[in-house]
C-alpha cells in the first residue's frame, strides 16, 4: 500500500506541474531542437531586440510608453521581471495542488514560497536554455547568451550564472515528471528561516523526497547516482539565488528602475 501511495503522490504532483506551468521541458525541447512548426524569433542584437518588442515580446508584456525611451538593459530587465512574476503565480498554484501544502500554516506557506520560488524558477529555466541562449515569450523568441553577456554591467551579469548552472543541470537529462517532483521538493523545504511548524513541513518534505528517490530509480535505472546529484543541485540553487538577490539589490540601489511589488516582497529581508 505504501508503494501505491507514493506512486499516486508522484502522479498528482506531475499532473499539477503539467496543468500549472505554461512552459515545460518537453515543449521547450521541441522548439530548441527545431521541431516546432514555427521557429522562434532570434534576438541577438539591439536591432532584433527592437523588432521583437514590436512583435513577440510586445504580446507577452505591455511594454508601456514609460519604457519605450529607456535603454535596452532596462527594458530587458523589465521583461525578466514580468516573466518571474508570472512564474511565481504559476508556482503558487502548483504549490497549492501539492497534497498537504494547503493544510500548512498560512504563514509557513508564505515563507516556503518566499524562499523557494527563485530556486524553482532557475531550476525550470534550465529547460528553456541551451548553450547558446534562452527561449522567451512562451517560446516565440530566443535571446542569445552572447547578446545578454554583451549588455552593460550589472545587467550583463544577470543571466550568465544561470546558463552555467543550466548546462550542468541539463546534463542530468531529467524529464518533466522528474522536474515536477524536484520543484515540489524545493518548495516544501523544512529549513527555511522563520518557519513556525517545522515538523509538519519536514514530514511533507520527507514524503516528497522519498517519492523523488523512488521515481528516479524507476525512470532512470541506469543512473544510480542521480538522486544524490539532485540533492547537491538543491545546494547549488540556494547559492545561485543568494547571488541573484545581491545583484537585484545592487540594481535597485544604483539603477533607475522599478521592481515589481511582488518581487519586492520576496526579496525583502530574504538573506
Amino acid at each position: 500500500p505504501q508503494l501505491s501511495d507514493q506512486k499516486t503522490l508522484a502522479r498528482q504532483i506531475y499532473e499539477a506541474y503539467l496543468k500549472n506551468f505554461n512552459m515545460n521541458k518537453a515543449k521547450a525541447r521541441t522548439i530548441l531542437t527545431g521541431k516546432a512548426s514555427t521557429p522562434p524569433f532570434v534576438i541577438h542584437d539591439m536591432e532584433t531586440l527592437q523588432l521583437a518588442e514590436q512583435t513577440v515580446l510586445g504580446k507577452m508584456v505591455d511594454t508601456a510608453a514609460a519604457l519605450r525611451d529607456r535603454e535596452a538593459e532596462v527594458r530587458i530587465f523589465h521583461c525578466c521581471q514580468c516573466t518571474s512574476v508570472e512564474t511565481v503565480t504559476e508556482l503558487t498554484e502548483f504549490a497549492k495542488s501539492v497534497p498537504g501544502f494547503s493544510n500548512l500554516d498560512l504563514n509557513d506557506q508564505v515563507t516556503l514560497l518566499k524562499y523557494g520560488v527563485h530556486e524553482a524558477i532557475f531550476a525550470m529555466l534550465a529547460s528553456s536554455m541551451n548553450k547558446d541562449g534562452l527561449l522567451v515569450a512562451y517560446g516565440s523568441g530566443f535571446i542569445t547568451r552572447e547578446f545578454l553577456k554583451s549588455l552593460r554591467r550589472p545587467f550583463s551579469e544577470m543571466m550568465e550564472p544561470k546558463f552555467q548552472f543550466a548546462m550542468k543541470f541539463n546534463s542530468l537529462e531529467l524529464d518533466d515528471s522528474d522536474l515536477a517532483l524536484f520543484v515540489a521538493a524545493i518548495i516544501c523545504c523544512g529549513d527555511r528561516p522563520g518557519l513556525v511548524n517545522v515538523t509538519h513541513i519536514e514530514r511533507l518534505q520527507e514524503s516528497i523526497i522519498q517519492v523523488l528517490q523512488l521515481h528516479l530509480l524507476t525512470n532512470h535505472p541506469d543512473n544510480t547516482f542521480l538522486f544524490p546529484k539532485l540533492l547537491q543541485k538543491l545546494v547549488d540553487l540556494r547559492q545561485l539565488v543568494t547571488e541573484h538577490a545581491l545583484l537585484v539589490q545592487e540594481i535597485k540601489k544604483t539603477e533607475d528602475t522599478s521592481l515589481h511589488p511582488l518581487l519586492q516582497e520576496i526579496y525583502k529581508d530574504m538573506y
Partner: peptide
C-alpha cells in the same frame, strides 16, 4: 509576515493577478 507579503498571501488565498509594474 502576512502584512509584509500581501501579494503572496493574496495569491495563496485566491487566484488573483499580481498586477503589472
Amino acid at each position: 509576515l502576512k502584512e509584509k507579503h500581501k501579494i503572496l498571501h493574496q495569491l495563496l488565498q485566491n487566484s488573483t493577478s499580481p498586477g503589472h509594474l
